[in-house]
Design a protein around this nucleic acid. Structure first.
Length: 137
RNA sequence: AAGCUGGUCGGAGAUGAUCGCUGGUGUGGUUCCGUUUCGGCGGGAUCGGCAUUAGAGGAAAGUCCGGACUCCUUAAGGCAAUGUGCCUCGUGAAAACGGGGGCGGCGGAGGGCGUAAGCCACCGUUGACGGAUAGUGUCGCAGAAAACAAACCGCCCUCCCGCGAAAGUGGGAAAGGUAAGGGUGAAAAGGCGAGGUAAGAGCUCACCGCCCCGAGGGUAACCGAGGGGGCAGGAUAAACCCCACGUGGUGCAAGACAGAACAGAGCAAAGUCCGGGCCGCCUGUCCGGUUCCCGAACGCGCAAGCGGGAAGGAAUAAGCUUGGGUAUUAGUCGCACCCUGAAACGCGCAAGCGGGACGGGGAGUUUCGGCUUCGGCCGGGGCUAGAAAAAUGAUCGUCCAUCUCGUUUCGGCGGGAUGAACAAAAUCCGGCUUACGGGACCAGCUUUCGC
RNA sequence: GCUCUUGUAGCUCAGGGGUAGAGCACUUCCUUGGUAAGGAAGAGGUCCCUGGUUCAAUUCCCGGCAAAGGCU
C-alpha cells in the first residue's frame, strides 16, 4: 500500500488531536496512537515521530524509513477510517527492521485496527516473522 | 617486519530484478465548470493512471571567519565597544592558503674561536611574533627583603670585659658600614677575573653581556663596521592599556508579489510625547547633490587659542505627490548552474516586454588519457539534488574485494561471513575547525629479527 | 536561520589568577524514655573535556562536548 504525502499527518494540530482524543498502545520499541475518524476520505492517515532523543539525523532517518517500509508492506490489512501516529522510543535506534515489524503487528492487533478478511493472508507472513524471531534472538 | 603517533591523498565496489519515496518533463482515461463558429479550447477534481528522467558529503556537521544576494529614508561627527597584529612574493573577490626570509624559544651534534664566561656556524623543531624606556595594576606561600630595593645570619669598624708578652682569640653593647657568602623562591637587581678596601661594592679596569648613536647593506622585517655609556631598564599586554589598521545594521524565518479580514490617520505649519533611521551613550538631524556662509559634540592646551568639521542657512539644478501601520492564515516567487537565444504562446494600440527548444560559450563536479618546473596545464566523455512533520529505502540474485573453514594433483575448487567509521543537503559559494573504519604514500618514535 | 547564557560536593548556588567555599542533605557523637529540633565533630570535588599563555589556571585565551533559553 502506498503512502504519499496526502495520507500522512503533516499538521501539528492533527498530531495533537490524536494525542489528546485518541488512545495509545505502548510496546518495547514503539508507541502507537490511534484515533477513529470517519470524516476523513482517505482509508488511513499515518504520522511518524522520531525525537532527537533517538540519536542523530542519520539514525532518526533510518528508523523513520523502516517504519514507513513496514507500513507499506502491511498497510492493506488496515481497516479504513483511522489516524495513526507511530512514535519511536529510544531502544528503536538499535532494533532490526524485523523486530520492529513484529512489534508493529502485535500493537496493531492489540489496537484492533486490522480487518478480519485480510487476516487469512497473514498466516504465511506470520511464519516468516517467526523465522525472523530466531535470527534476532 | 610489527606496533604507535602525526601529516597528505582518497572516502559506502560493480551490475540486475521486484516493491516504494521526492522533484522535473511528456501523455491518457473518467468527471465537473467556463467558453463555443458545436469541431474543440481552457481550468479544476479524480484514477494519486502510464511513460521517461534526476536524486546526499568529505566533512553535507560545528556555525568559527569571509563573500554573493536582500531590505533598511546612504547609514553624520565624537565617545564607547569590538576585531586584527614580524617582513616579502604568489594564488584569491575577500577571508584564507602556499613559497621564501628575519628575529626569538627548545633540542641535537658536541664543529670552530676562547683559560673561562661566552660568541660564531650547522641540522631539526617551534612561536596569537606591534609596544614592558607612555602610564597604572599584580607578583600568594616561603624568605630579612619582591620592585622609589632590602641588613635575618654572616663580614667590618668603634667601645667594654676575659685570656695572652704580642699577633690574636672568646663574650657582650649600641650607632653605623657592607649585597662578596648562607638559606628562601618561578624570579634576589649583569657574569667572570684582577685591582681596590676596615669589610665590601661597576667603586675602577680588561673580556663578555646589555643599552644608546650609527657608516654601510637589504624591496622589507632586519643585519651591522665603528663609536659612546658605566649598568640605568625583573616578569606579566591570552591584566588594564598605548600604537597602527579596520568594523552602518539586517539575515532567505532576508525580501518580493497577489488575495481576504480589521481598525484608523492625513492631504497646512509648529510644538510636545513615543518609536525608528543610526546595536550602546552624547551632539545634531530627518529625500539626494554642488558651491559659499555659519559652525555642534569631541581632541590638544594652565590659559589665550589651535585643530575638528556633522547638521543648518543661501544660491542653483533636478525629482515626487494617494501613502502608511497592525495582526493572522495559506499560496506563488526568491529556489535549484549561468549567459546567449528561434518559434508557439501570454501582455501591449504599437514599439516592445515576458517566454524559452536545438545549438554555442562559460562555471562547477566527476572520470579517462597525456605533459609537468609537482604549483598545475592540455584534450575527450558524463553529469548539474532540492523538501517544508523534511525525498535515496527494503528484499533478492550475479560478479568483485577482504577474512575464514574444508579439500588439493599446490594450479585451484567448494562452503560461510562481511561490504563497515564519522555522519545526511535546507538560499548559494570560498575557507577554517572538529569527527572518522579500512587503504595508499611520507616523516618520527619504540620493539624484535637478520646482515 | 540567527543569537546569548550556563556547566563547581548528592541538590541549590557563591567564588574570579595563589592549596576550594555556603545552605540543605549524609555519617558519628551529645541531648531525650524515644523521635524531631538543637549542639559538636567529620566525610564527600577529574571545578564538563582538550590544548595554550603564565612561576602558578576553576578563573585568561583557542577548540570541542552537553544543557537551558531568546529573536523572527
Amino acid at each position: 500500500m502506498r503512502f504519499p504525502r496526502d495520507r500522512r499527518i503533516t499538521s501539528r494540530r492533527l498530531f495533537q488531536r490524536v494525542r489528546e482524543e485518541g488512545t495509545s498502545v505502548a510496546g518495547h520499541f514503539l508507541v502507537l496512537g490511534v484515533l477513529r475518524d470517519d470524516s476523513i476520505t482517505d482509508p488511513v492517515r499515518v504520522g511518524y515521530i522520531t525525537t532527537r532523543r533517538l540519536g542523530n539525523a542519520v539514525t532518526r532517518n533510518r528508523v523513520r524509513r523502516r517504519m514507513r517500509g513496514i507500513l507499506q508492506r502491511t498497510g492493506e490489512r488496515l481497516q479504513p477510517g483511522y489516524c495513526l501516529v507511530l512514535v519511536a522510543r529510544n531502544r528503536a535506534a538499535d532494533a532490526s527492521s524485523e523486530a520492529l515489524e513484529k512489534e508493529w503487528k502485535w500493537l496493531a492487533h492489540r489496537a484492533g485496527i486490522f480487518s478480519k478478511r485480510s487476516s487469512k493472508r497473514e498466516t504465511p507472513v506470520d511464519t516468516k516473522s517467526s523465522e525472523g524471531e530466531t535470527s534476532v534472538a
